[in-house]
Nucleic acid binder design. Sequence first.
DNA 1: AGCCTTTGACCAGCG
DNA 2: TCGCTGGTCAAAGGC
Length: 313
Amino acid sequence: TLAAALFPDMPSPAFHGSFTQLLVGAMGSPAASSASGPSPPSPFPVPPGLSRTALLGSPSLFSPTGNFEMSHRQALAQVTAQAVHSQYTIVNQADYPLPFSSTTSAFTSQHVNSSANITSTEETPTPPSLTGNSNFKPNEVSQGFQTSALTVDKPADDGYNWRKYGQKAVKGGEYPRSYYKCTQAGCPVKKKVERSACGEITQIIYRGQHNHQRPPKRRSKDGGSLLDEVDDFHENGDTLNRSEQGSQDHSAKFEVSNDGITVPSMSKRAEGDDQSSGSSDSEEKACDEAGADNGDGGSTNAKKRHVPAPAQR
DNA sequence: AGCCTTTGACCAGCG
DNA sequence: TCGCTGGTCAAAGGC
């Protein structure tokens, strides 16, 4: 199989199976198509606003033992190389081990589908997001896009509660980067979320490891239903992944589009859900229609306030 | 009331 | 030492 070809050192047949799933998802994506040869920009319909953005949850490829870590990295390298179109990058930044359980591979599949970039940095311990709940569930992403005006910039929600503590335009302002901290008292986890000028999440970098269990859902307004689904998923079928540390519960939930392509739920939303259309909606639209015009990503919600206070420190 | 986002300023690392 | 850049702080305001 292609999976085997790409990831020769795949541990077990079982894993092969799940990983294949992953690839299958990938095959339906531009990234995948690019893997089998040059392909035009976007061979398949992309929901407005979502554009070819996708997540690639690689963590799921890892085995708890860590043996697979290397192969995963290799895999990453290869997939990344192939996912030329990828716009979504999940970075496993230092501090994260990669003890991902194979069961999460399903999760990976969906993300791969639309081409993505995965960047694993050294000593990646378990990024709560990547592995645990892989934090990176499409649903979460969608959530990020569908949140109310208040949380326009909320990144993929991984089940943990985050507080944004800063935003900065890096690299010449090309990518506004948002900084989030886990709101759990004493939890050192932080994450950086980069968005394209269109407001699309292009990269998420986790740092640190959650030292607590995922908190129970509490905010239903930001994508509550989706999250609930995710939670159910966690509780029902993915519990085995949470083996050791609560911070490493791996879970994956993805949705399959009509094409049989796994799609992050955000695309789902883009396809017709506008019940929670927020600024992000028009934002993305603007992106499609006018290109990266509204720049400034996260700060797009033109809320003018906060008069520069006198010297703060 | 509590939590969260926004955003300019501050701080530290690096070349 | 200086300037640049990325990361963080914290006041103000919104929900």
